Computed example of a mutant assay.
Amino acid sequence: MLAGTVIGMATPIVASSANAAPAASSSERGDSGSGTVRRITMYAEELPGNQIGYGLEPGQATIPGPTLEMWEGDTLEIELVNTTNQRLSIHPHGVEYDVDSDGSPLNGSFNEPGETRTYVWSTRAPIHGKGRRWLPGSAGYWHYHDHAMGGGHGSLGLRRGLYGALVVRRRGDLEPDRQFTVVFNGMTVNNKVAPEAPLFEANLGELVEFICIGHGDFFHTFHLHAHRWADNRTGMLEGPNDPTPVVDNKDLNPGSSFGFQVIAGDGVGPGAWMYHCHVQFHSDDGMAGIFLVRNEDGSLPDGAQEALDRYYGHDHGGGHDHDGHAAHSHDDVKEE
């Protein structure tokens, strides 16, 4: 494991009780359309480097914030505690809420410094309307973020790290073995640049879910080496004749999000596979990281350490993080 680096092997955070818990079972999460109301408390906290993150416990804020999961038909009540000296909020994409839970100053929906406020998000399954019309459900790969710090659109909060992934699943959806969130924010990946960009790890054959989110002022694309997915809601084809386009590169622009599932190393084997923005000067300036597929037993595959050494030894746009500070050196990735 890399010294001083948080390896991106986070399990999904699911509001299954008064206190959210990671890696909840399917029964704890509730079935699609169950109408379950879940309650969690989140904390907005200052982090080193003039950053701010969301967390599920005091002192546990991260960038990105915890991944929140719901099933279609469920409601999530979030008690947001603002421990900072800045006005902030939490605003979701893809789910339903009233004006009091909008998270925008336009509707007076935000937390003053030190204030606690509850936001309520609800979801629904597809609805059969008149004739052949169907209204969409809430299932998808969405996200949440601040909408109040530094102005009416939360631009300062986004720059400082107040964002995270929101997944709404439909009954029958596959749940992954590993789950990773990739946020292209300005010219950073999760507010970092190479060689500090997240290292994501999985073992050969595991079902891996990527949640990709865009923020900031620049247009990007997301490319994952050696893996491809169906350009639909889940990333998986629904049959051998499914005409959905299969891609390995997709636009990831401010405010957009998508997700997909792949089998780690399927057809290509284990190794150090790159992910990056395919706008060339963006990747040259550090918008690139590694998806490390280990052997099935968790050991490091042949050639992977050498590839990692090249990545960490390369000058990515001067080797600076998003605030211009010199990047730190890394120890080798160790055998598990």
Rank of each mutant, 00 (worst) to 15 (best):
Q179D: 11
R170V: 00
P126F: 10
D173Y: 04
L199A: 01
G161M: 11
S155W: 01
G152D: 12
W142D: 08
G150A: 11
G172W: 03
D173L: 09
L162F: 02
P176M: 01
V189F: 07
V193S: 12
H147W: 10
A139C: 04
R159Q: 07
Y163S: 04
R159A: 14
D173A: 03
F184I: 10
N185R: 10
G161S: 06
A197S: 15
V167H: 07
A165C: 05
S138Y: 12
T188A: 15
R171P: 03
L156Y: 06
K130F: 14
R169Y: 11
P195N: 03
V183L: 11
N191C: 14
L199P: 09
A165M: 05
R159D: 07
N185F: 09
R170N: 08
F200E: 07
A197N: 05
E206Y: 03
L204I: 00
A202R: 10
A165K: 04
L156Q: 08
L174M: 13
V168C: 00
V208K: 01
P195R: 01
H147V: 01
H147K: 10
Y144C: 06
I127M: 14
P126V: 03
G157D: 03
R169V: 01
L158E: 09
V193F: 03
R171D: 12
R159S: 06
L166M: 11
V182H: 10
G129T: 09
N190D: 13
V167P: 00
R171W: 13
D177A: 10
A202N: 09
V182F: 10
G150Y: 02
F200T: 12
N190I: 11
K192S: 13
G157T: 01
G161D: 04
G157Q: 04
F184S: 05
E196Q: 15
N191F: 14
V183K: 06
F200C: 09
W142C: 08
G157M: 03
P198H: 06
E206A: 06
L207A: 10
G137Q: 11
T181L: 09
M187L: 15
T181E: 14
P176L: 00
H153P: 02
E175F: 14
H153S: 12
D177W: 03
Y141D: 08
M149Y: 02
